[in-house]
Simulated assay, not measured.
Amino acid sequence: MFRVLTAAGIVVGFSVSAASAQDTKLKFELYKGKDDQFRWRLKAGNGAILATAGQGYKAAADAKHGIELVQKAGTDSKEKFEVYEDEKKEHRWRLKAANGQVVATSSEGYKAKADAEKAVASIKTGVAKAEVVEVKE
């Protein structure tokens, strides 16, 4: 069981296997943040946030391009997922574009490296079919 702290400060629990079972229900939410920057987050079918852009974009089209890069990541070898250990000794993942820029990051840390790798595998298999919806914050 993993925990995710949402932007609203709510702790949501989910397991990697539960997220894997809901691959076809992955969805991107595109929204305009309080800073007037466009952002996106990738959600599992159960509502857990799996990934974020980690940055804001001035134009919605640029945020949508970031989403497209993530959607291609499951089949395109130009984008690379990296699993790493953070300062808290938790395992996280990030997706880098061919130019080295980070385009997506895990929204949580995992105690075991294998769990972070399972999350990446789950995203790779379901992200191409993820719908994109615009939401208001």
Rank of each mutant, 00 (worst) to 15 (best):
A104G: 10
K118N: 11
A51E: 02
L95I: 07
L69Q: 14
T75D: 14
I123V: 15
L50Q: 04
S20H: 13
A128T: 10
A61W: 07
F14P: 00
R39F: 04
L95T: 04
K88N: 12
Y57L: 05
L30P: 01
R94G: 05
R3H: 11
S122R: 04
K43T: 09
E85F: 09
A59H: 15
L26R: 05
S122N: 12
E117Y: 08
K111Q: 10
A73P: 06
V127C: 04
F14S: 09
V102A: 12
A59T: 15
G109Y: 01
D76R: 14
A59D: 15
T24L: 10
F38T: 02
G126D: 02
A130S: 05
A112D: 13
G54K: 03
V12H: 05
Q37F: 10
G100L: 04
T52E: 07
R92V: 06
K80P: 07
L26M: 13
D62F: 09
W93P: 01
A73V: 08
K43N: 11
G66K: 01
R94K: 15
F28D: 00
G126F: 00
G74I: 05
S20E: 12
D62C: 08
K78P: 07
E137G: 15
K118E: 07
L69Y: 13
A59Y: 15
E85I: 14
N99I: 07
